[in-house]
Design a protein around this nucleic acid. Structure first.
Lengths: 258, 258
DNA sequence: CGTCAGTTTGAGCTTGCTCAACAATAGTGG
DNA sequence: CCACTATTGTTGAGCAAGCTCAAACTGACG
């Protein structure tokens, strides 16, 4: 949001404000650089092939593309999905600033998913070969890489539970609560946010039709759980939503660390 | 199969045949050691905390356990699942020889899944801290670790597609074909194999009830696609099964004769 | 044999899907 | 500025895939 405001500014632009490197990036605590000291950080920053800004609808990569770089989102929102022989799509997830894309392509050296910008988005591309090389000498980077992949696995496990064992209401409550927690993690409001994705995308992601998504959200609205106006969401009754979105044992009881 | 045959032998036993290390393990081409030269292989082998044989129903680890080691399956079959606050289970996958368990626990240092033996199983435990250390000096190990995690992500992506976009017939066809391909990869028959898991487990995994699983398998039987007797499976019409189990673009276009 | 767990089969029901109409919004061009 | 169109979202009515409940069957094991 901050960046898109900057883009609109017609006034004099201080280019240095845009020369973001890992050292002065406000996402460094979420992204790959986490835990890496200044010296090593500059090594990491030097590998970054800074990629331009992508408009909504543009692809970061497509299934079949050769895999070269891991992509860290800086601003915006990305949709990741696979397509089968029938042309049917399954959205695997939505990605936000500080998150890493392309990890699943390491094994085969080829992307198997499509990543498309849902809104104007910017990102950094880290060439995988250079990252791997740096992993030799920077143990914190190795740790961070492993943790990112591990986290991705955990998130998918959670998604599998949601898709496999929840009804429409629970799926949508889970969706809203998960988004809320991610926005909070990024430093945004946990109760008021903007949906970057369409109802169609939400339904596809959760294994529901667009009609069901619309109906359930309307009912949540009537019942006073949320206030939804088009893509603007305000969570009114987080407790009830959390009760609907049953999650893992540990998480609802303990408070988050790290 | 080879190993379980050795176990049954009542004759004189050469203990050295059981002192399996990475160097003489028949799974080395599937497991972590892949691509690592002899010198480094012995370093890796030395880290292994060789763990005993687990009977069916015993846990390799449970959600909440501290994470110490990655577990490589040597023989048998393992079921991995999560449990939510309501006590509801979702099976995340079944694991066979040469496959690695516990990758999702790296981020939090705590297991979030339960891993239980479906039949008598043996495995090797690789302490994660030592693996991480070795990753500094053995680039092939680092590569293999990254590839394992990447592969795991791809497999989960595929599962998400199956669960989200397939009806009961397609889910079960996909299940059978996927098992077949994994057995083939391990060097076993691709058309005749034994189901280590119950109908209950299959249903849970695929998001179906046990009754639906039973009905669909019975129908597949009548239609001559498979011959199923209790847990013994023979695939009769692999082509039709593959056609039902629509997968990613690349795979079905190549010759399906196999 | 009797019990028990796992599985199969049958019959009716429910959730979420399909089909269809309509509303709201944004974009386009005159 | 408005009419026109396209796109996206909302709402209603009926339908069907797969679920629930129930009963019967199978093989293993004491």
């Amino acid at each position: 949001m901050a960046v898109s405001k900057a883009q609109q500014s017609p006034a004099i632009i201080d280019l240095n404000r845009f020369r973001v490197t890992c050292s002065n990036c406000n996402l460094s605590e979420l992204c790959l650089p986490r835990g890496i000291d200044k010296d090593n950080l500059s090594k990491l920053a030097n590998t970054v092939r800074q990629s331009g800004i992508y408009e909504a609808g543009h692809f970061l990569f497509r299934a079949g593309d050769p895999f070269k770089s891991l992509v860290a989102i800086r601003t915006g929102a990305i949709k990741l999905y696979v397509v089968d022989d029938n042309g049917e799509e399954q959205i695997l997830g939505f990605y936000f600033p500080g998150e890493l894309l392309g990890l699943d392509a390491i094994e085969t050296d080829t992307h198997t998913c499509n990543a498309v910008a849902l809104e104007t988005s910017s990102f950094c591309a880290f060439p995988y070969s250079k990252l791997d090389e740096l992993c030799k000498t920077i143990p914190e980077l190795r740790t961070q890489m492993f943790k990112f992949m591990s986290r991705e696995l955990s998130l998918e496990n959670r998604l599998l539970l949601t898709l496999g064992k929840r009804n429409a209401d629970e799926k949508l409550a889970t969706f809203l609560i998960t988004l809320s927690e991610r926005f909070k993690r990024m430093g945004y409001s946990a109760t008021e946010f903007h949906l970057a994705m369409s109802r169609q995308d939400i339904g596809n992601y959760l294994g529901l039709t667009i009609e069901t998504v619309s109906r359930v959200l309307s009912r949540f609205n009537k019942e006073g759980l949320v206030r939804i106006d088009r893509k603007q969401v305000k969570l009114l009754d987080v407790d009830t939503l959390k009760r609907l979105s049953v999650t893992y044992c540990e998480e609802t009881k303990k408070n988050p660390s790290t």
